[in-house]
Design a protein around this nucleic acid. Structure first.
Lengths: 189, 189
DNA sequence: TCACCTTACGACACCAAGTGACAGCTTTGT
DNA sequence: ACAAAGCTGTCACTTGGTGTCGTAAGGTGA
């Protein structure tokens, strides 16, 4: 069974913890919330919290793990003769939202945007999928590593700028449109 | 006196701590070195270490504070009618080295490049000067915030790619040339 | 020179994030 | 039904980081 009861329960518990954590963070702030608070909120020990998440920060980014594979898969599903930049554009346009906030909804986004520790963790997470995307891009289009790095880094630069603008406007900005503008502006050539 | 004896000794002590810290980190690894180890190495208490640096990570980035002002000053010294992208290019080409490693030499660079906690902190530091650079750029060239963010983010994307390539080649790559290539490739238009 | 004030330091106590080890309970596979 | 595997609480421990206090030293003005 690829999906045993144990695994399902575990995922459910993880999700419950994550939800409680984000709620508490949004209410009291990240630093003002202790891991014990979160654990108690879902009826477990501090120790058990760390059996579901490696760090306090990670509770906000629950469910991101699959993202990497999906983005890479999408990247590899694009026509091989397509402009690499265009491939990145199309794929990231689709995954912009989950990549940006890593799955914690609008609350989570605001939270991440306003908490340095979480921003730092987000960057770390990004590095993971960026490496994967870089390798996929390099393999599919025969790019050297520097160029592949350059393109994927630039792509995340666009995502960041869109996220910043979104945060600045209080959540009103059309992020997809901003991403389009960014990709148009930085198109290599 | 803008430069009293107190201030000078303080700077000297800071530098000494930083040096000891980087040395220990390079020798034993970041996680394997405790703050007390560093403090003892320079003959002080853990408590006093934290009177010179807010966090353990920051010991590696000693002397970065001035960088922000200098980069901004350079940015504002560029001709006002110059292409903003070109201004960024010229300025960052000059400051690429200190910005990248934040002043701890080649050892420090390798250290940062290979230690997730330090990479995270570096990104945070970057955000500081990026914000400043963004504001300066926006003010000088009358750009909207999104465009200014986009350009500065892209610029750091280039710096990152160059740093990654540099690390990959074991320190042989000509970073200035890579930066030039990056700026040429992503030139907006 | 003497009194004054600021600064730096050590010492101590404390909190929170993680980690390791152990013991007991429940679930699963056979 | 039974053993292996998984989850949990409990306890002890390390480490990064902070607040407080007492005190010694250095710099400042009369």
């Amino acid at each position: 069974m690829a999906d045993s009861l144990r695994e399902r329960t575990r995922r459910a518990v993880r999700a419950e913890i994550a939800q409680a954590a984000v709620a508490l963070f949004a209410e009291r702030g990240f630093d003002e919330t202790t891991v014990e608070d979160i654990a108690r909120a879902v009826g477990m020990t501090k120790r058990s919290f760390f059996r579901y998440f490696p760090t306090k920060e990670d509770a906000v980014f629950a469910g991101t793990e699959v993202l990497v594979e999906r983005v890479v898969a999408d990247l590899e599903a694009r026509p091989a003769d397509e402009d690499p930049w265009e491939s990145l554009h199309q794929v990231l346009r689709r995954w912009e939202e989950p990549i940006f906030s890593a799955g914690a909804g609008a609350d989570g986004r605001r939270l991440v945007e306003s908490t340095p520790a979480l921003r730092a963790r987000l960057h770390q997470k990004r590095e993971t999928w960026r490496t994967a995307a870089r390798d996929a891009l390099a393999a599919r289009h025969g790019l050297d590593t520097f160029t592949a790095d350059l393109l994927t880094n630039a792509a995340t630069a666009i995502l960041d700028a869109a996220a910043q603008e979104w945060a600045r406007t209080g959540g009103d900005a059309d992020r997809a449109e901003l991403v389009d503008r960014g990709f148009a502006a930085l198109r290599p050539g």
